[in-house]
Design a protein around this nucleic acid. Structure first.
Lengths: 203, 203
DNA sequence: CTATACTTTCAGTACAAACTGAAATCAGGA
DNA sequence: TCCTGATTTCAGTTTGTACTGAAAGTATAG
């Protein structure tokens, strides 16, 4: 690949890349393109409740398409070692990047999943569990608090009825949404492409 | 209707509700239930990039089901006038709550849309426009920067090809997602229920 | 016009999340 | 075993967001 440099003898310890090898024009162009993607992706992540740096790291791993080590990430995104370490670990916890050991090397590498659909379904599953399920739970609890069993005839009061209606409306919405999510999650690898096709035809 | 035919002096305006009328047990129970919903909704909003207070105000308007004035909101959520004012305006800008004038009253009231599907589609439309479209735009730009027109034969280099592949994968994903969003948005009022039924049958 | 009721704005503050850097810890090789 | 490169942790700091409260603004009735 980047064999434009003097053939470095594969010494005892192979540096990931020559300390600061000047980039060829093509490499520069590649970086520029990648950086644009990374920046936009980070911005988007932010507004969706994912911290910018984490989104950027993930974007970097994804877009480059090959394993990167901590120093690569630090250098490329200008972040500290601590930040890189914590964010990489969090991404691993999410399951959208993977740790990777290279033979005869001490340092660890990280690579992104390559299938966007799979990543999406992983994230969807987790967010559903963490954020939507508790709300659905709460709604059910609320409805119980306001049913006749608890309030008796008072449950017929206008204000109570109104709130009950609203709770019902929201519950219906969230149940359906949840079901859709579930479907995506269930079909993560297997039939996702097919599911999507069905979806698109439905529209 | 409002019996303000008689020249009611605007002086000591009729308070929205008696200053601090003690709540009946039923009202208390109702509040407790509503509060639970509001709290959970606020927490969820936070992790989706919506600030907690705004989400809570919206939840309050939605769950109560009748128009509330600024003071109602302040009192109920324990927030300042400034905060209430700004958040209410932002919610109006989003279009998920509406300003409402009552005959013969100076103060303004706010009420939430009642149809959850409509609210969702409004939000989806806006977020798509603000957050997804720019990314798609960026991806297209990136792909252009890396095509043969710009890089010549260098475009065949492995690293470049890899990134191009990744960009393509992401673009496909986002296009489909976008299309789905679009469909929801388009069917906001008209046939949403039908669309959902189709969806559910597809699964 | 003035007085009153209500709304908006915004400078300043409080609070929270993100980030750094260095020290502590861990793991492989001799 | 120790040595060394790599990773993790975390106290302290920076940065950013949310919030308050009071002053300015707006609108209506008289």
């Amino acid at each position: 690949m980047t064999a434009t440099q003097t053939p470095v003898p594969m010494g005892p310890v192979v540096p990931a890349r020559a300390a600061h090898a000047p980039l060829t024009p093509v490499e520069q162009q590649l970086r520029t393109a990648q950086d644009l993607f990374i920046r936009r992706w980070g911005e988007m992540g932010q507004t969706w409740g994912i911290n910018r740096t984490m989104a950027e790291i993930h974007a970097l791993c994804y877009i480059v398409g090959k394993p990167l080590c901590t120093d690569d990430v630090m250098e490329r995104l200008h972040i500290s070692r601590g930040n890189a370490s914590m964010s990489l670990r969090a991404l691993c916890d999410w399951g959208i990047i993977r740790r990777l050991h290279k033979r005869g090397e001490r340092r660890e590498y990280f690579e992104s999943l390559s299938d966007v659909w799979e990543m999406f379904s992983i994230i969807a599953a987790e967010r559903k569990r963490r954020e939507m399920d508790p709300v659905l739970e709460a709604i059910k609890q609320c409805r119980q608090m306001l049913d006749e069993g608890h309030l008796g005839k008072a449950a017929k009061q206008e204000a109570v009825q109104l709130t009950r209606q609203r709770l019902a409306g929201m519950e219906e919405f969230m149940s359906v949404t949840n079901k859709i999510f579930q479907e995506f999650i269930g079909n993560a690898k297997s039939g996702l492409t097919k599911v999507v096709k069905v979806l698109l035809k439905a529209f």
